[in-house]
Simulated scan of single mutants.
Amino acid sequence: MSKNVGRVSGTPSPNRARIGREVAARLEADPKITRAKTEAAAMYTYPDFLSAHECDLLIELIDAAARPSTLLATHNDPEFRTSSSTDLDRWSDAVWPIDDRIAILLGLPPANAETMQGQRYAPGQQFRAHCDYFHEGAEYWAKMLEYGGQRTWTAMVYLNDVDEGGATWFPRAGVRFKPKRGLMVIWNNMCPDGSPNYDTLHEGTRVVEGQKYIITKWFRENAWIRGHVPTYVSSTGAQR
C-alpha cells in the first residue's frame, strides 16, 4: 500500500491511470522482465537490455558533449545534483534505434518521450533524493502542460559496472539497484489512480570508486513532440 500521504504533488487522472495499467500489463507479459519486490510502486528490471557495443557507443556520446547537470526548480543545496548530462541526438543512427526500442517495449508512443538524456557520475558525485514527476503546483507546471503534461514512466539503463557506490536507491519503496552494464530499470511515477506517487522518491547514491554512466528516458502522458514522428529506418533500409 502506498505511503503517499500528505505529499501528493498532483491530482488523480483517468488517462494516467490507464497508461499505468496498460504499460504494466505489457511489461508483466514479457518473460525477460521481472517485477521488483515492492508494493509501493510498479517497478521492473530488464537485464542486458543493451549490448556491450551499444553501451560503449552511448558512453562515447555522453563524454563528447557532457555538461553540468541542471535542475528544473532551484535548490539551496549545491551538492544536490553534481553529475554531468548530455542530451542525446534523437535522430542519429546511434540513438534512434535504441530510443524506438524503449518506446516499443513499454508500448508508448515515441512522440510522448522526452529526449533521451545521458548522465555521467565521477567519484564523489551524486543525485540526492528526488522524484521524476512534476509538482503540479510549481511555477514550471504551466510550461510542462504545453509539452505533454505529467511524466508517467521512467526507463533508465546502466551503461557500465561501477567499482563502488552509485546505486539507485528508492528509500520509501525499500529497493536498491546496483549498477550493472546493460540493466534497465523501469518504473511508473504515478499511483494506480494516476496521481503522482511519492514512493518513487529515489537517489543516485554517491560514486565512491570508478565512474557511472546511465541513460534515462522519460515519457509524458501526452505528446512531447509536436508534429509527425517518423519510424526509424536502418542503414540497410529495414524499417523498425
Rank of each mutant, 00 (worst) to 15 (best):
N4E: 09
G6R: 05
S9Y: 11
G10S: 09
P12Q: 03
P12G: 03
A24Q: 13
D30V: 04
P31N: 05
T34V: 11
T34W: 05
A36P: 01
E39W: 10
A40L: 09
Y46T: 00
L58H: 02
A64K: 14
R67S: 07
R67L: 08
P68W: 06
S69K: 05
T70K: 10
L71P: 03
L71S: 05
E79F: 10
R81Y: 07
S83W: 11
D87M: 11
R90D: 02
A94N: 10
W96Y: 15
P97N: 14
I102C: 15
I104V: 08
L105D: 02
G107H: 11
P110N: 06
A111E: 15
T115I: 12
M116D: 01
Q125K: 12
F127C: 07
E136C: 13
Y140P: 01
L145P: 02
E146C: 11
R151A: 10
R151V: 05
T152D: 09
A155M: 07
M156S: 06
V157Y: 00
V157G: 00
Y158R: 00
L159H: 04
G165E: 01
A167S: 15
T168S: 10
W169A: 11
R181K: 15
I186C: 06
W187M: 04
W187R: 03
N189M: 07
P196C: 04
P196A: 02
H202F: 10
T205D: 03
R206T: 13
V207F: 06
Y213D: 00
I214N: 00
T216A: 15
R220H: 15
N222D: 13
A223I: 02
A223D: 15
W224D: 01
G227W: 14
V233N: 11
V233I: 15
G237C: 12
R240A: 14
